[in-house]
Amino acid sequence: MKKVNFTEMKNGTKEDYQLLEKYEKSFERQTADRIIKYLASQTTTLEGYQITRLEHSLQAATRAYKNGENEEMVVATLLHDIGDDLAPMNHSQYAASILRPYVSERTYWIIQHHGLFQTYYSAHHLGGDRNARDKFRDHEHYQATINFCENYDQSSFDPNYKSMSLDEFSPMVRRIFSKTPYYYL
């Protein structure tokens, strides 16, 4: 594989950067496959839960799909907790940043804030404020985020729920991540 000539970016030439752009475009086209592979590897559970991380994602996405959500929201629901492993303290923002170039502002906002909104179900049991989400009460996507948490996230920990398979969602993931990123539109 051909490589650039520089050791400091400030010394790169047009040819160097054209070469890197070619490689990066190829790498970007494989994003969906890397995401699917990562999701498939989530076959263990966070201690204490009855299902795996993968099963939680599949249940949530299946619920969104069966509820008639658009493909963008179904895929975002599938990926909403993808940051749990690497960014447990800000998993929502992590997941949202992965989705951001490919989804609407509404979908991005919902995924970015779902972690805080989800604390509605648990914070009061641990001495926290279950209504912390209310600081966003006037935001246009406030209710949509409540609905996301209620309908897809908090209800998707059931070991007896029949989820769709990751293979069934894979074409949707590939379509979303093959879209022209919003910042190019």
Rank of each mutant, 00 (worst) to 15 (best):
T77A: 06
I98H: 03
D84C: 10
T77C: 05
I51F: 10
L86Q: 12
D81G: 08
H91S: 04
R53S: 05
A60V: 14
N90H: 14
T52A: 11
D81S: 13
A95G: 14
P88V: 00
T107L: 07
E69V: 04
A96K: 10
S92R: 05
Y108K: 03
E71G: 03
N131L: 15
M89H: 14
G83D: 03
I98Q: 04
E71D: 10
H80R: 07
N131S: 12
Q93W: 09
K66W: 10
E55D: 15
Y65I: 08
A95N: 11
T77E: 07
T107R: 05
G128E: 02
K135P: 07
E150H: 05
S122F: 09
K135R: 15
G128C: 01
Y108G: 01
E140V: 12
R106S: 13
F148P: 02
A87T: 10
R137F: 03
L99T: 09
A64Q: 06
R53A: 05
Q93T: 13
D85S: 01
I146R: 06
S104G: 02
S122P: 01
R63Y: 02
Y65E: 13
E72I: 05
H125V: 11
H56F: 07
S122Y: 06
F136V: 05
D129F: 01
T62N: 04
A96I: 10
R53K: 12
L99E: 03
K66F: 11
F148L: 04
N67W: 05
Y108I: 11
E105H: 14
Y121E: 15
A96L: 14
Y65T: 11
H125W: 03
L116E: 08
E150Y: 10
K135Y: 09
T52W: 05
D84P: 06
D129K: 11
T119W: 00
A95M: 11
F148Q: 03
H124A: 15
N131K: 14
H139K: 15
Y142Q: 06
F148A: 01
Q143D: 08
Q143L: 09
Q59F: 06
I82G: 03
Y142A: 03
Q112K: 13
H141A: 10
P101R: 10
E71V: 09
G68Q: 01
T77N: 06
N131Q: 14
T119G: 00
E150L: 12
D129T: 03
T62R: 05
G128V: 04
M73S: 02
H125N: 07
Q118P: 03
T52C: 06
L54V: 12
Q93L: 13
S104M: 00
R130K: 10
A96R: 12
C149S: 05
L86E: 07
M89C: 13
V75E: 00
H141G: 05
H114R: 04
I111V: 15
N90G: 12
Y120P: 09
Y102A: 02
A95W: 08
P101V: 04
H56S: 09
L99G: 07
Q112C: 12
P101M: 07
R100A: 14
E69H: 08
H56V: 06
L58Q: 15
G128P: 00
I51G: 10
L79D: 01
T52I: 06
V75N: 01
L79G: 00
Y142D: 04
L58H: 14
Q50I: 07
I111N: 11
I110K: 09
P88D: 00
F117M: 10
T145A: 01
T52Y: 10
R133H: 13
G68F: 01
